[in-house]
Design a binder for these strands. Structure first.
Length: 487
RNA sequence: GGCGGCAUAGCCAAGUGGUAAGGCAGAGGCCUGCAAAGCCUUUAUUCCCCGGUUCGAAUCCGGGUGCCGCCUCCA
């Protein structure tokens, strides 16, 4: 089976054929560290996280680089507002970003280079561009001349003459063409500055990615990704710079993820509806957020709503449900499948999941298959009992497959007991109650049930319901759970 | 003005030529004192509209309508 990916450059799905068979070199544009991360960042990072995980699961040796843009106008502005140095601002938000990523169960890239640590590489490329005649300088600024690069516009599918130059921004009169972009920027006093052939200055936004990707992945590499908004101008400019400088194709497959809307509205500063990762994971389980993000295709727009998160959270409970039953049955987690069955890599479930993922990382389809598998597993448990299931190699291989898909999606990473326990703790905290009190209520209810005082029993259940507690009467006794998807 | 995307049940969503996955919500059933959880059944004669190609189209082609994104910093 070959993996097919939608390539923004060719506007079609193509078979993924890495430059070096079996190896994939992937570069994803990371954040400009001037503020906290919002759900849009989360989507982008999660999308490439699952691509990374899937490619590895399919046996590729993946080298994954994601940069931090740690020098930029936005950072300088932010530093002025906060009365901090730009370096301190960058450091603060890099730390925050890493925390957010850890909470969201994100794999770390193999490398997370900083723009400011690669100034000499950047300068070297700007000089090459200047020597080759693709760049010109004006008072300490160096610009890339888009007219010298005939293929300019090939990624975003636009022609220079079709674009409304300066429609919304004032054009710098020193530019030869309004779409010329800055490679190197003269620093004003007090701004971060490095010595360069053109005087004290700092890199333009796009050049760092050309420099760092070339250094770590080579002048041609396999996958380059980011949000859709980066197609123009950022990635268009990267292509121009890199291909002009190195004289060879830059990237084989361009992958771009779609945007997130909040309650059917675009996220924007003016609407003030930016949703931060931190706000979401304070309310919902991080894996519920991941599940939500995978609920439709990565290139489509995705609408964040309270209801959608509820559904994702319910779905996650549904997935963890049978896992908890298995954990309780075998008394540990994760199960060791070698003991139960020979075939634990590549059952029907895993193969169907791969089929979905092979088709341009179709996680929505993959999740459909996963839920089907959960239902089949629940049914098997109902019919054969847990010991019956765990003795059946067909069933255990399905469980192994289920955990494998979870590993690709970055969910089911908690032990089931712990997953539900966390949610129960949240119930205790928000209700200001403790376990003993609940257990006492459950005992009282058991007494009432014994004497067939069902009115009393139901009253106790209703009372607990007020604290978002749900009771389940099981053969082995009554247990309590959290009532809704929030944590 | 230029470029691109989308339109599938109450909601979310997969499906790119062979007769509509999956989730949430709803209805009925099994189980239960009643519930909850789980399971079973059920919920689109039909995929925005109109034409066309085809034995056959949600899927391809032409036209229309509606919504959205980008062209400016933005994931």
């Amino acid at each position: 089976m070959t993996i097919r990916v939608y390539n923004t450059l060719t506007r079609q799905k193509e078979a993924l054929e890495p430059l070096i068979p079996g190896k994939i070199k992937m570069y994803v544009c990371g954040p400009t560290v001037y503020d906290s991360c919002h759900i849009g960042h989360a989507r982008s990072v999660v999308v490439f996280d699952v691509i990374y995980r899937y490619l590895r699961a399919r046996g590729y040796d993946v080298f994954y680089v994601r940069n931090f843009t740690d020098v930029d106008d936005k950072i300088i502005n932010r530093a002025n507002t906060l009365a901090m140095s730009p370096e301190a601002v960058a450091k603060k938000y890099i730390k925050e970003f890493r925390q957010d990523m850890a909470v969201l169960n994100m794999c770390s890239p193999d490398l997370e280079p900083l723009a400011t640590a690669h100034i000499s590489h950047i300068i070297r490329i700007v000089r090459i561009l200047e020597e080759k005649g693709f760049a010109y300088h004006r008072d300490g600024d160096v610009f890339f001349s888009v007219e010298k690069w005939p293929e300019y516009g090939k990624l975003s599918g636009r022609k220079l003459e079709d674009m409304e130059a300066g429609a919304r921004v004032e054009v710098d009169q020193r530019k030869e063409n309004p779409f010329d972009f800055v490679l190197w920027k003269a620093s004003k006093p007090g701004e971060p500055a490095w010595d360069s052939p053109w005087g004290k200055g700092r890199p333009g936004w796009h050049i760092e990615c050309s420099a760092m990707s070339a250094k770590y992945l080579g002048e041609t590499f396999d996958i380059h990704g980011g949000g859709k908004d980066l197609i123009f101008p950022h990635h268009e400019n990267e292509i121009a710079q890199s291909e002009a400088a190195f004289g060879k194709p830059f990237v084989r497959y361009w992958i771009h993820n779609g945007f997130i809307n909040i309650n059917h509205e675009k996220m924007s500063k003016s609407l003030g509806n930016f949703l931060m990762i931190n706000d979401i994971v304070n309310t919902w389980h991080p894996e519920a957020l991941r599940l939500f993000l995978f609920s439709n295709h990565y290139r489509s727009p995705l609408d964040y709503t309270e209801q959608a998160m509820h559904e994702a959270a319910s779905g996650l409970d549904k997935i963890y449900g049978p896992l908890l039953r298995i954990e309780e049955h075998i008394g540990k987690w994760p199960p060791e499948f070698e003991k139960y069955g020979p075939d634990n890599n590549g059952g029907v479930l895993w193969n169907r999941f791969c089929e979905a993922m092979d088709d341009d990382f179709n996680t929505a389809r993959g999740i459909g298959i996963l839920f089907e598998a959960v239902r089949i597993l629940n049914r098997a448990i109902d019919e054969k009992g847990l010991s019956g299931v765990m003795r059946d190699s067909l069933e255990t291989s399905r469980i192994a497959d289920l955990l494998k898909t979870g590993n690709v999606l970055g969910i089911m990473a908690e032990t089931p007991h712990r997953y539900f326990e966390k949610r129960k703790e949240a119930v205790l905290e928000s209700g200001g109650i403790d376990r003993d009190w609940i257990e006492e209520k459950i005992r009282e209810r058991a007494e009432a049930r014994k004497t067939k005082d069902f009115a009393r029993a139901d009253a106790i259940r209703d009372e607990l319901g007020q604290y978002n507690i749900v009771l389940e009467d099981r053969p082995e006794g009554t247990i309590w759970k959290h009532g809704d998807g929030k944590t």
